[in-house]
Amino acid sequence: ATNIVGKVKWYNSTKNAGFIEQDNGGKDVFVHKSAVDAAGLHSLEEGQDVIFDLEEKQGKAYAVNLRIK
């Protein structure tokens, strides 16, 4: 899926990971530091509006192509 709108639920820069809550009510999506880095960002803030694509690896959904809304 592409161009999904959501809000950062939480992001821990020590653990280099967090979750994004989908505005469409879907399951929360894992976001890794690699996606944050690829977006040219240093970190994510709780409640921040984002747009992202979903990629599945080994049955788990990940946020990729992250951008700030």
Rank of each mutant, 00 (worst) to 15 (best):
A39I: 07
V5N: 13
K7G: 01
A35D: 05
I20L: 10
T2S: 10
T14K: 14
I68R: 06
L41A: 06
I68A: 07
K60D: 05
K57W: 13
T2E: 09
N24V: 07
H42I: 12
S34K: 10
K27D: 10
I51K: 04
L66R: 00
G6M: 02
N65D: 02
F19D: 01
K33Y: 08
I68F: 10
D49E: 15
I51Y: 08
F52D: 00
A1E: 09
G25C: 08
L54N: 01
L44F: 05
K7D: 00
Y11F: 09
N3M: 07
E56V: 15
T2A: 09
L54I: 15
K27W: 08
A17W: 15
K57I: 11
E55I: 14
G18V: 03
A61M: 14
N24D: 09
S34C: 11
G59M: 05
T2N: 10
V50R: 00
K15L: 15
V31A: 02
E45W: 15
S13G: 10
K15R: 12
I20M: 03
G47L: 04
N24F: 09
K7I: 07
T14S: 13
Q48M: 13
N24C: 11
V29H: 02
G25Y: 07
G59P: 01
I68E: 04
E45S: 12
E56A: 08
L66Q: 00
T2I: 13
A63I: 04
E55K: 11
V64E: 03
V36K: 02
K9E: 00
K57R: 13
D53F: 03
Q58K: 12
K27I: 10
E55R: 12
E55H: 11
K27T: 09
N12K: 08
N12T: 06
I51W: 08
Q22Y: 15
K9L: 06
V50M: 06
G59Y: 04
H32W: 06
N16T: 06
E55C: 13
H42R: 12
Y11N: 02
N65I: 02
D37V: 15
E46C: 13
K60S: 06
N12A: 07
K27Q: 11
N3G: 10
A35E: 08
V36H: 01
H42C: 14
F19L: 11
F19H: 04
G6R: 01
E46Q: 15
A38C: 09
F52Y: 06
V36C: 03
V5Y: 13
L44V: 03
D28R: 10
D53Y: 02
E21R: 15
V50E: 00
G18H: 02
F19V: 12
Q22R: 14
K7T: 08
Q58W: 14
I51E: 07
I4Q: 10
V5G: 11
K7F: 06
T2K: 14
I68D: 04
L54A: 03
Q48H: 05
I68H: 05
G47P: 00
D49K: 15
K57N: 10
L66C: 02
I20N: 00
E56Q: 11
A39R: 02
L41N: 02
D28F: 10
N12Q: 07
K60P: 03
A39L: 07
N65W: 02
G47Y: 04
L66H: 01
Q58R: 13
I51T: 08
N3Y: 06
D53C: 04
V8R: 01
T2M: 12
G47M: 04
E56D: 08
D23P: 15
A38E: 08
Y62C: 09
D37M: 14
V50K: 01
D28T: 09
I4Y: 07
V29Q: 01
G26E: 09
D53A: 03
I20R: 01
V64D: 02
K7M: 05
E45R: 14
G26N: 09
A61H: 12
A35S: 09
I4N: 06
G6C: 02
A39D: 01
E45L: 13
V5S: 14
K60V: 09
L41P: 02
F30A: 05
K15D: 07
D28G: 09
G47I: 02
S43Q: 11
V31F: 12
S13K: 14
V8L: 04
L44A: 01
K33V: 08
G6D: 00
R67Q: 07
G25V: 05
Q22L: 13
L41I: 09
A61T: 14
G18Q: 01
I20A: 01
G59R: 05
V8D: 00
V36W: 04
E46N: 12
G59K: 05
S13M: 11
Y11H: 02
E56M: 14
R67H: 05
G40H: 07
Q58S: 12
D49Y: 15
Y11C: 04
A35Y: 05
K27A: 12
R67L: 04
G18I: 04
S13L: 11
V36D: 01
V29N: 00
K60L: 10
N16R: 15
Q48W: 14
G25I: 06
G18D: 01
A61N: 10
K69C: 12
T14R: 14
F19I: 12
L44G: 01
W10G: 03
A38Q: 09
I68G: 04
K69N: 11
G6K: 01
V50Q: 00
G25L: 06
H32C: 11
F30T: 03
A35F: 04
Q22I: 13
A38K: 11
G26K: 10
S34P: 04
A1N: 13
D49R: 15
A39M: 07
V8I: 10
F19T: 05
N16V: 04
N16H: 13
I20D: 00
D49S: 14
V29K: 01
K7L: 04
F52P: 00
G6H: 00
S34L: 10
D49T: 15
T2D: 06
G59I: 02
I68Q: 05
K9I: 06
A38Y: 07
H32I: 06
R67D: 02
V31K: 00
L66D: 00
I20E: 01
A38M: 09
N16D: 07
F30Y: 11
H32T: 10
W10R: 05
R67E: 03
L41Y: 10
L54V: 13
V50S: 00
A17P: 01
V29Y: 06
T2G: 06
Y11G: 01
A35W: 04
I68L: 13
G40A: 05
W10S: 06
H32M: 10
G40I: 03
I4M: 11
A39Q: 03
A63D: 02
D23R: 15
E55T: 09
K57L: 09
L44E: 01
L54H: 02
Y62K: 07
D28A: 09
E55N: 08
V8E: 00
Y62T: 08
V29C: 03
K27L: 10
A17S: 14
V29I: 11
N12D: 12
G40D: 05
Y11D: 01
A63R: 01
G40M: 07
G26F: 08
D49Q: 15
D23S: 15
Y11R: 02
E46K: 15
V8S: 00
V64M: 06
N3L: 05
F30P: 06
L41V: 07
D37H: 14
V5F: 13
K57A: 10
N12M: 08
H42D: 12
D49W: 15
A38L: 09
I4W: 06
G18N: 01
Q58D: 15
H42Y: 12
H42P: 12
K9P: 00
G59N: 08
K15T: 10
A1P: 10
A63S: 02
K9W: 03
Y11A: 03
E55L: 13
N16W: 10
V8F: 07
S43R: 12
D23A: 15
F30I: 06
I68C: 07
K7S: 05
K69T: 12
D37E: 14
K7V: 08
A1K: 14
F30R: 06
E55Y: 14
T2V: 13
Q48T: 10
F19R: 07
V36E: 00
G59V: 01
D37F: 14
V31Q: 00
D28Q: 09
L41R: 05
S43F: 12
G47Q: 04
N12S: 14
D53G: 02
R67Y: 04
V50H: 00
W10N: 04
V64S: 06
A17M: 15
D53E: 04
L66Y: 00
D37C: 14
N24Q: 09
F19P: 00
G6Q: 01
Q58E: 13
K57E: 08
G40S: 06
K9T: 03
D23Q: 15
E46Y: 12
V64I: 11
K69L: 14
N16Q: 13
K27V: 11
K57H: 11
K57Q: 09
K33M: 06
K33I: 06
F30L: 06
I51C: 08
R67P: 01
D23F: 15
A38I: 08
K27P: 15
Y11Q: 01
Q58T: 08
A17L: 14
G25N: 08
S13T: 12
G18K: 01
I20F: 04
Q58L: 12
S43H: 12
S13I: 12
A61V: 15
I4T: 04
A61E: 11
S43P: 09
K69I: 14
N65A: 04
F30K: 04
A35M: 06
E56W: 15
A63N: 01
N16C: 13
V64G: 03
D37P: 01
T2Q: 12
K9G: 02
E45T: 13
K7H: 09
D28V: 10
E55P: 01
L44Q: 00
K33C: 08
D37I: 15
H42V: 12
Y62W: 12
V31E: 00
K33E: 04
G47H: 05
V29S: 02
A38R: 10
V5E: 12
L41D: 01
T2F: 14
V36T: 03
Y11W: 13
I20V: 05
